[in-house]
Nucleic acid binder design. Structure first.
Length: 452
DNA sequence: AAGCTGACGCTTCCTACAAG
DNA sequence: CTTGTAGGAAGCGTCAGCTT
């Protein structure tokens, strides 16, 4: 996004990509090599050039994140004298030194300031410019490292708008700001995406979703000389996974909000249709002569709904919470009109409760239908009566409660599966057999140990 | 003159804890 | 079970002054 690119192809067609931001990503700074990331040849070269005369200062001055303490500890462990002149190391000693450097656990991880990530702002600008989606969430993971090479993973997710629809989630990969074009399905990112249980994030196949994965590192572990796909190093995999899941959580909130807005709209149209009729009936039943003025209420509700819609389309970050939206209904109830109207049911659980009750009594449904007929609504009309028409009207009375139980069970199992699969991913080689039980046991063990 | 040492500031790690 | 956060501790990087 920070570069202007002009390109004329062999047919003379001009491609012009103007820059969309003025801010440049921070330039990388030069750093020493990390002890875990050097090879024998490199160490030999450093020794030939070094001016240090003992091993401790040799390690300190030529390697990244090695200080006095670490150097001394390391030398003691591998059995090389602290005072040894590095120039006197024999070839086989250099080889063992390098080997131990790679395996020694207590080197601090490399600093990531030598990397130049795009940054969340620029990545988002780039995505918006190219796809113009409805929703973008960008995450920059904190720096991490593998084998002495620092890396930063940046992930973006785009939804709707100009994102093309496809059965598969569209994946864009970048390595040190260079797009990778081929062998997409062999890449770690593709592997991670396949392993994620998207249904848990309310994402179904066919939704217009694009995922951007940008890996920034001093050494990108390409699997082949073609430099087209990134090898699945576990450290990378974990970071990419976390990034994508973080984006997915944000996208889920966005989708939930959109669904809720749609529900509110639908609900409003129902109010507009039936409120006058209900008020008329209630007036007659109460023996009053004058109908109360319900238009004020309706306007109020309309306003709240519109606010909701505006908020949903515009700046929709995580600044909204469950329940924040619904007080409108409580207000309605307080004013004594909306009370006990089935249409005011909130959320899925509540919808089920009410539905169940209704069916237990066994009479409400036909009654409702006669009501509709009375007001000139045909029996097979498609007007949805609750925000969840499937569960409310199509379920037969006898099955209503049963269905509820089944659903909850299914949900539980979903959660279980998700949990076990993620732990599998982390340990990579755990048994698939024993599920929650062993874990619980060890918890209890821990508890008892703590008590002791 | 070159390399070593020590002080200070800053970053990172570790641990406990809370929330989802 | 995972992730994020806060507070304290440890260790690195840098620079100036000292030693060989």
């Amino acid at each position: 996004p920070y570069a202007t690119i002009t390109f004329i192809d062999p047919d003379g067609v001009l491609y012009f990509f103007p820059r969309s931001v003025e801010k440049m990503p921070p330039p990388p700074t030069e750093v020493l090599p990390h002890p875990r990331g050097v090879d024998v040849e490199q160490v030999r070269r450093i020794i030939s050039e070094t001016k240090t005369r003992d091993m401790v200062s040799f390690l300190r001055t030529h390697f990244h994140r090695v200080g006095k303490k670490t150097a001394e500890k390391f030398l003691d462990e591998i059995g090389i004298s602290r005072d040894k002149d590095p120039r006197e190391l024999k070839p086989d000693e250099i080889v063992t030194l390098v080997r131990k450097m790679k395996t020694y656990k207590e080197f601090l991880p490399p600093d990531a300031k030598c990397l130049s990530p795009l940054g969340e702002e620029l990545l988002e600008a780039g995505i918006r410019k190219e796809l113009n989606p409805d929703f973008v969430k960008v995450v920059q993971r904190p720096p991490s490292s593998y084998g002495g090479h620092p890396f930063i993973v940046e992930v973006g997710i785009a939804y709707g708008g100009g994102v093309p629809r496809s059965e598969e989630i569209i994946l864009y990969r970048f390595a040190n700001k260079i797009p990778l074009l081929f062998d997409e399905y062999k890449d770690v990112s593709a592997k991670v995406i396949r392993s994620i249980k998207w249904s848990r994030y309310r994402i179904k196949p066919g939704m217009p979703i694009a995922i951007f994965v940008h890996l920034v590192s001093t050494n990108i572990p390409f699997k082949t000389a073609g430099k087209e796909f990134i090898a699945d190093r576990p450290e990378l995999e974990v970071e990419i996974r976390r990034g994508i899941l973080e984006c997915a959580r944000a996208l889920m909130r966005y989708i939930q909000r959109k669904e809720r807005v749609a529900r509110e709209k639908q609900r409003l149209s129902i109010y507009e249709k039936f409120l006058p009729l209900i008020v008329r009936d209630i007036t007659i039943l109460a023996g009053e002569e004058k109908e109360p003025d319900y238009t004020v209420l309706l306007e109020k509700y309309k306003m709240i709904t519109e606010e909701e819609i505006a908020g949903g389309e515009g700046a929709m970050e995580e600044e909204f919470e469950e329940g924040e939206v619904v007080p409108s209904l409580e207000e309605l109830e307080e004013e004594g009109v909306a009370v006990e109207m089935d249409l005011t049911v909130e959320g899925e659980d509540a919808a089920e409760e009410v539905t169940e009750e209704r069916f237990v009594e066994g009479e409400t449904v036909p009654e409702l239908e006669t009501h509709l007929e009375q007001y000139g609504v045909p029996e097979d009309s498609e007007i949805p009566l609750t925000d969840n028409p499937g569960s409310a009207l199509e379920v037969k009375p006898a099955e209503a409660s049963h269905k509820k139980v089944v659903r909850k069970k299914a949900e539980k199992e979903k959660v279980k599966e998700e949990g076990s699969s993620s732990s599998k991913a982390k340990r990579s080689s755990s048994k698939s057999g024993g599920r929650a039980k062993p874990a619980r046991k060890s918890d209890k063990k821990k508890e008892s140990e703590a008590k002791e």
